[in-house]
Amino acid sequence: MKRVARVLAFAQTAYFVAVAQTATAQVDEAPSVLVESPPPADYNAKLLLTNGISTIGGASGGGISDWATIAGRQSDRGIGVQLHVSGAVLPDYLWQSHGIAVGIADRVELSYARQNFDTQDVGAALGIGQGYVLNQDVWGAKLRVAGDTVYGSPLLPQIAVGVQYKRSLDGGVAAAVGAAHDEGVDFVVSATKLFLARSILLDATARMTKANQNGLLGFGSVGNDDYSVQFEGALAYQFSRRFVMGAEYRSKPDNLGLGEDDWIDIFAAWGATDNITVTAAYADLGSIATFEGQRGVFAQAQLAF
């Protein structure tokens, strides 16, 4: 009978342990199951507007300056997508571009843009044909290396490095105006920070490039085929969660000796919905292919997830 009692005691203990285990398992598991469950499908993980707007080269930033921001509205575990269409009406030209950018884990950005530059009457004057359209493809990759646009020390901006491969589809025209190449690679370093205490966003970007008019007139020239370091910057004021106004500047080389000017614009961007950003700007692009005073209106619509 002693052994029976021992077996019984053992069984009872086992029973207690089992009950206790299920009890603790319930307590421990319930919250962690909830935490692990994926967030709702419509979860925009980034703060509004912190994905920037797609630039004319497809990377996220302002309109003409690349920023350290990563495209798309996903954050550290998601893959975001950003699509854009842009147009500008200038005295002698029409600009149109569109593109896609993918932001991976708020860390890596891959982008593509197609640029179409309608030379209108200038085409005839230059002898390339009335309404000749210069086209270019731009592929970009950007890596966020440090910092955060919004969080952390105000002294540490979000910093990103990028490369852009640009290919003019009009090598003949590029060669005719004296460009050395119809393709080129830009190297870009950007620092971007939102200074919440002042509601001001600042960006400073350095670009090593050979591009003539952004690459639409080829890269380098027969006489000067060296890279130069150019500066891009933006200063913007946040009026509300959804509305920002600012100014941008972008310096450019004059490899071809055609009097190529720096670019400047003032812009207003509005997050019309959580996924749509509409931007309008007044841009001064200076002299393009010797035709001066190219000031006009730029507009963009962007869809981001």
């Binding site: 969080y151 952390g152 919440l196 205490a197 509601s199």
Partner: peptide
């Protein structure tokens, strides 16, 4: 935003 500026550095 001025208040959020006080909280943003707590990120880490």
């Amino acid at each position: 935003n001025r208040f959020l500026a006080k909280l943003a550095p707590m990120y880490g």
